[in-house]
Amino acid sequence: MGDRQLQSEFNEHKRAIAGLRRKAVILVVVGILLIAGALCMGRFLKSKGASAIAVLMFVAGTGDLFAAGYVRIGANRRDRKRRQFAKDTITAAALSEAFEDVEYAPDKAVSGSVIRTAGLIKRWDVQYGSDHVRGRYKGRVFAFSDVELMEEVETEDDEGRTKVSYYTCFKGQWIMIETNRDLPGELRLREREKGNRAKSNMETENVAFNAKYQIEAKDAHSAFMMLTPHFMEAIVRADILANGKTYIYFGGRYIHIAIHNNRNLFELSKKNQHADIAAMRACQKNEVKYITDILDIFLLNTKLFG
């Protein structure tokens, strides 16, 4: 699909959404006016005819409000279609440019069982996710998606009623890269939150690294086989690029990099939803680059990815 055709499709979506939203607003205003008018008539005019008109106006006003809601739902549905269209065209193209053998599933995410196996986030109950991408980057198999993990918390009010609420314990990207061999052991790195003094079960010679991450390793020897001095510095560099809290798991043949940055990639934000195709494309490429920059740093480790 050419740029001009894409742009006209987007413009068509934009016009339709704007039209539906305008209609919804008008319907709401008319509905409110009708209901207000009906209430006034009912209060001040006592004749039978006036009462009948007031009832009719009230019914019409209520119907108007329902119609406004229906139109608004239609606008939202159309907006979702536009977002899906953006993902199918612009995002998919940006991904194909950067990666080989790409499989892009906007509605899927890294599976919950994989996240549980990694064991980076200790407590979570509900998982949401989107934009699952799988493919090869510089010859290495990778996968990533947006992931949101929520923990269920039960609280009791003064009258003893139990209230269940959910709070987000992780929101960001979950990236997996395949290494060139079975890793010698399991290792977990969790970037410390402010005031988190959770003890590591080993210490490296890099004091800053020890302070930044909680290190959880089954045995120190295999952890040191993976956490070489250069690689530790590379991890810190990747963490700076990620601009969020980073959690890393080494196990099996995969390295998992979970970045808690409260971001949702490949979505049309309010800022760029009215932009032209070139601006949207630049924005999506930028988001792909965010991932490739992090992958690039890890792939520098020729022992694991050579």
């Binding site: 080993m202 210490e203 010679e205 120190a220 020897h221 295999s222 040191f224 086989m225 070489t228 022992k303």
Partner: peptide, 13 residues
Amino acid sequence: EDHLQAARRVYNM
């Protein structure tokens, strides 16, 4: 040599 480096670092730790 990789194993020796890892063993050295465990010892030094």
